[in-house]
Design a protein around this nucleic acid. Structure first.
Length: 152
DNA sequence: GCCAACGTTGGC
DNA sequence: GCCAACGTTGGC
């Protein structure tokens, strides 16, 4: 099993929104970055655990846990001209973008803030805390996963 | 295939 | 809202 971190802007889709979805499950659509896509398409497996991260907000940080319940399939929002994630270069016969389904597992009582994570020397190798990182989907090492859970 | 211009992300 | 750091685009 692998561990991941997925970013979402809470104004767009917060962890409470995931929880409110039918069965707490929702497709993770709209990823339009090749590195992130490759990880979702090739490496994310059913049962993998995911840190749900709130970005671009007052207190950016990890707010809870989700899990992968469906492995990658074409992101159909790329085919819809009405959708803001529309990408005319993604052909339904040869889709460019993929997504997975994630399911709500738990919400932490308090945010594990980016500031908190950055202050931990054990986590300095995490892509998340490295400068200039913009990946919206990234792998989390098991050791890092466990260490972060100790903060809950 | 290089690289300048442009667009986006996301912390602050 | 600013801006640094990236990613993408497109002319050449």
């Amino acid at each position: 099993m692998n561990y991941w971190l997925m970013k979402s802007e809470p104004d767009v889709f917060a962890i409470d929104d995931l929880k409110a979805c039918p069965n707490g499950t929702e497709p993770w659509d709209g990823v339009r970055n090749y590195q992130a896509r490759n990880m979702m398409r090739d490496d994310m497996k059913k049962g993998d655990k995911v840190f749900f991260y709130h970005s671009n907000c007052k207190v950016p940080g990890i707010v809870g846990i989700a899990k992968v319940v469906k492995e990658s399939y074409p992101d159909h929002t790329a085919f819809d001209p009405e959708c803001k994630y529309y990408d005319p270069k993604s052909d339904p016969d040869n889709p460019r973008w993929f997504m997975v389904d994630v399911k709500f597992v738990k919400k932490f009582k308090e945010v594990i803030s980016l500031e908190q994570l950055k202050a931990m020397p054990e986590l300095e190798e995490m892509p998340l805390v490295r400068r200039g990182n913009r990946l919206s989907v990234m792998p989390v090492g098991e050791e890092h996963w466990e260490r972060i859970l100790e903060l809950v």
